[in-house]
Simulated assay, not measured.
Amino acid sequence: MAHTLCANKRIRQDRKKALANKAYKSKMRTAVKKFLSAVSSGDKTAAAEAFKSAEVTIRKVTTKGVIHKNQASRRVSRLAVRLNAMG
């Protein structure tokens, strides 16, 4: 248990940030899942649109500091490989 005012404030701030980060990660995972479902359906145009959306979401999560920039680049690269493998 925290004993000082600043420690209690830090705990409150951490909880708030954790909720925000959780929401950002969830949004990112949802965008990736939409892309993967478009790829599995075989629709190239829908997959390309979903890829653009997923990439923007991943980059935004990176700028918020939720994931590292190298992890974001790796995720986008793997999605691009899947998109290019379609045809």
Rank of each mutant, 00 (worst) to 15 (best):
M1H: 15
H3W: 12
T4P: 04
T4Q: 05
A7Y: 10
N8Y: 13
N8I: 09
Q13W: 15
Q13S: 11
D14P: 05
D14M: 10
R15I: 14
R15K: 13
K16Q: 12
K17C: 05
K17A: 10
A18F: 10
A18T: 08
A18Y: 09
L19G: 04
K22V: 04
A23K: 14
Y24A: 09
K25W: 10
K27E: 04
M28D: 01
M28P: 02
R29V: 07
T30K: 06
A31N: 05
V32A: 04
V32Q: 00
V32S: 01
F35H: 00
F35N: 00
F35L: 09
L36F: 05
L36Q: 04
L36C: 02
S40R: 07
S40M: 01
S40Q: 07
S41N: 13
G42Y: 06
D43T: 04
D43Y: 01
K44W: 12
K44R: 12
A47K: 02
A47Q: 02
A48N: 07
E49C: 03
K52Q: 11
K52V: 08
S53P: 07
S53V: 03
A54Q: 01
E55P: 00
V56K: 15
T57W: 02
I58F: 06
R59P: 01
K60H: 11
V61P: 00
V61T: 13
V61H: 03
T62G: 06
T62F: 03
T63K: 15
K64H: 15
G65T: 01
V66I: 02
H68I: 06
N70H: 15
S73K: 06
R75K: 15
R75Y: 06
V76H: 02
V76C: 05
R78F: 08
R78V: 02
L79A: 05
L79F: 06
V81M: 11
L83F: 06
L83N: 10
A85W: 11
M86Q: 06
M86K: 04
G87I: 14
